[in-house]
């Protein structure tokens, strides 16, 4: 594994809200998908988890949020600590109560419920009363004005960007300290992606919500995150502060793409890729 250092290590300086220590995930008792992944999200941090299709980003998030069981997966090794407490044996319900919630890949709004009902389902685990929930609902409409306009539409019929906002808003209704955001850019126009990421940053700065962000859109993720991890076939192959990663040649080569002469020839890129791998 390669660790990029630049200035003070971002993850070492602040106390961590989430620590994943060397976890292995097995699907169906046979397929080893994560082979010892460790990562740390500092309190109030935005951390990007990068990598290609099938690298294990979604599996890592599901392992943290305890949603693996539904996919017949299992954490067989390692530990996960959230806010100083071991959480790897909790049900998703109990984890949400403790303030860690996942926004699933592909938005997954409840299509036959209205936007407002979708948002209200996010408040399911909250013990405080209807008045507090009402207040937070208003607050979310202020963050996402487009949702207010659409509040009575069925979620299945609104645009992809609005669905993504609805999914994030729904997660916010649980009053989380941390959101695991899986592939928020998927299937959205670049402009909308920019809008979503801007909201993520705003939520982070204004409300102090920490984010662990799984993304294939490396350029965008590294623009908004403070720290990044790159996964390849179930292993962390590189991590470091976002600005160091943005400047790193290998990251540029593999995940961002470069515009200079060297990469202009498609054949060169292909052979270069074949020769150089990060795999240990």
């Amino acid at each position: 594994m390669q660790r990029l250092e630049q200035g003070e290590g971002e993850s070492g300086r602040l106390s961590p809200i989430l620590t994943v220590n060397n976890i292995e995930v097995v699907y169906d008792h046979v397929a080893l998908v994560l082979k010892g992944v460790s990562l740390t999200v500092p309190e109030r941090g935005v951390v990007a988890l990068l990598g290609a299709n099938g690298a294990g980003k979604t599996t890592a998030l599901r392992a943290i949020s305890n949603l693996l069981k539904g996919e017949r997966g299992e954490v067989t090794k390692g530990s996960i600590t959230f806010a100083g407490e071991r959480v790897d044996r909790l049900t998703p319900n109990n984890l949400v109560r403790r303030g860690c919630i996942q926004v699933l890949e592909g938005r997954r709004c409840f299509g036959h419920l209205t936007i407002e009902e979708n948002l209200l389902t996010g408040a399911y685990t909250r013990p405080d009363g209807a008045a507090a929930i009402r207040r937070d609902l208003d607050h979310i409409y202020e963050t996402f004005p487009r949702l207010r306009q659409r509040r009575t539409s069925l979620a299945g019929y609104v645009s992809g960007g609005e669905q993504q906002m609805c999914a994030i808003g729904r997660a916010l209704m649980s009053k989380p300290r941390m959101i695991l955001l899986d592939e928020p850019s998927m299937g959205l126009a670049p402009q909308v992606v920019e809008e979503i990421f801007a909201i993520v940053r705003e939520l982070n700065l204004r409300e102090g919500v920490s984010f662990l962000l799984a993304e294939q859109n490396t350029r965008m993720a590294l623009k908004y995150a403070t720290y990044g991890y790159i996964l390849e076939t179930g292993r962390v192959v590189m991590d470091g502060p976002a600005e160091a990663m943005r400047e790193n040649d290998d990251v540029k080569e593999f995940y961002i793409g470069r515009a200079d002469a060297q990469g202009a020839n498609f054949r060169n890129v292909k052979t270069y890729r074949r020769r150089k791998r990060w795999l240990s």
């Binding site: 949020s65 949603l67 539904g70 998703p92 319900n93 984890l95 949400v96 109560r97 919630i101 996942q102 926004v103 699933l104 997954r108 709004c109 409840f110 299509g111 036959h112 419920l113 009902e117 979708n118 389902t121 996010g122 399911y124 685990t125 729904r170 997660a171 649980s174």
Partner: peptide
């Protein structure tokens, strides 16, 4: 109704 629509999304919100 949420569970009827999408099991795992319902689970993800707790």
């Amino acid at each position: 109704r949420a569970v009827a629509d999408d099991h795992s999304a319902a689970q993800s919100v707790g």
